[in-house]
Design a protein around this nucleic acid. Structure first.
Lengths: 213, 213
DNA sequence: TTCAAAATGTGATAAATCCTCACATTTGCA
DNA sequence: TGCAAATGTGAGGATTTATCACATTTTGAA
């Protein structure tokens, strides 16, 4: 499992850690490092996060930090990787049981709300995903995540609209999903009232596109 | 004019330059600095751009650079500020003469294509706008720019659909514009064929939302 | 023209930060 | 037990941003 993650990280331009934690002791320490990083990011943002602070807060030396994370970006990437995994599980579960268009509409709407609330409430998630445009590795992770999530949509839509063109469906789902991320990011950047309006407008637009009028 | 820009920069969290270029000589040097920065960003990205390199390429000392730009981000911000100004002029011009729904559709479609081509062809623009999620000053600039551009859309749409709810129109236009940026960014991140499909899908979706079926 | 004040120009260097590396300690296991 | 692998450490090398005291050029009023 750790090897899988390392391999995936390699593909998107993150150097693999020199070591994967093999012993219980180091696994716990890596957890403490990630927790410390998470706390610091929540406080000041990942840009202001200092490797020395992470090490100190985790109660390890700076050398230990670099034993498992090749560089600063890798820490943020590791956090992002976890969020995508959690997110995909959540989305897959929410869409799996959908049977008809009405069910899809309410499931989709609920997913968007969850996403919106998550970004409103969690500074770490907000910060980690904000690096997504500038950092190539994060960008690749986000694209892969978006594609995976779009696939969940496509799987449901193929059942609901068996006549639809599959390629068209893929394109639309991918686009709609990315736009959802954009919409949520926009919504949390403005005041709450306007943000709510924007999210509702996005839902309407997305559903119209995905399941028609 | 320079004071205006400085004031605007202040509002979004960019410290004002200690000095605005007042003499012809320094104005030319500032241009050289921006040109050098632009070239370096095109080569390696703004993250890899080094202040020393910018100074050297511009033929000025590092001290002169900091005379007019308080920090590294300010250089990128200054470039971004120019692109938004140019973009707004272009958009305003394209929409000003629209008379009916058909005219709007073709003008909008053309604008999206221009935007897409610009991002495909110009590494500097691509890079500068990619910092938009992480850098607060850039984010604020982009939001203000998006609002301004959405206003151009609203102005036209009010003429085409005098019965529509103004608040709804504002929300939709703002959202659709931001989504267009997201769509273009997505399109340039994938292979050309899929990118073209995504942009076309966006156009269809946006136009359906803005002017109906 | 003169000359003082403002504007501009310079680059060594202070300060901050990332990351490495040589060496120490702990753990797993034959 | 004893050795190899895994893990732990933190001083210091390497980079890079940004400052500042001082030099030079331009402007404009007398």
């Amino acid at each position: 499992m750790d090897e899988k993650v390392a391999a995936k990280a390699d593909q998107v331009g993150i150097a693999s850690p020199r070591r994967s934690p093999a012993q219980q002791r180091s696994r716990e320490r890596v957890e403490r490092m990630l927790a410390a990083a998470s706390a610091l990011i929540a406080e000041q943002g990942s840009d202001a996060m200092r490797m020395g602070e992470v090490a100190e807060k985790a109660g390890v030396s700076i050398g230990s930090l670099y034993q498992f994370f090749p560089d600063k970006r890798a820490i943020v990437w590791a956090l992002a990787e976890r969020y995508t995994a959690e997110g995909q599980a959540c989305i897959s579960a929410a869409l799996k049981e959908v049977e008809d268009a009405e069910g899809f509409k309410s499931a989709f709407s609920e997913l968007v709300d969850i996403y919106y609330q998550l970004f409103l409430a969690e500074p770490v998630i907000r910060d980690v995903w904000s690096g997504t445009q500038a950092d190539k590795a994060l960008r690749a992770l986000e694209l892969a995540d978006s594609r995976a999530n779009a696939e969940f949509l496509v799987a449901v839509l193929k059942r609901l609209r068996p006549d639809a063109d599959p390629v068209q469906l893929e394109t639309t789902a991918f686009l709609v999903w990315q736009m959802g991320e954009a919409a949520v990011r926009l919504a949390i950047s403005v005041d709450r009232e306007e943000g709510d309006r924007l999210v509702e407008a996005y839902k309407r637009m997305a559903l119209r596109e995905l399941v028609g009028e």
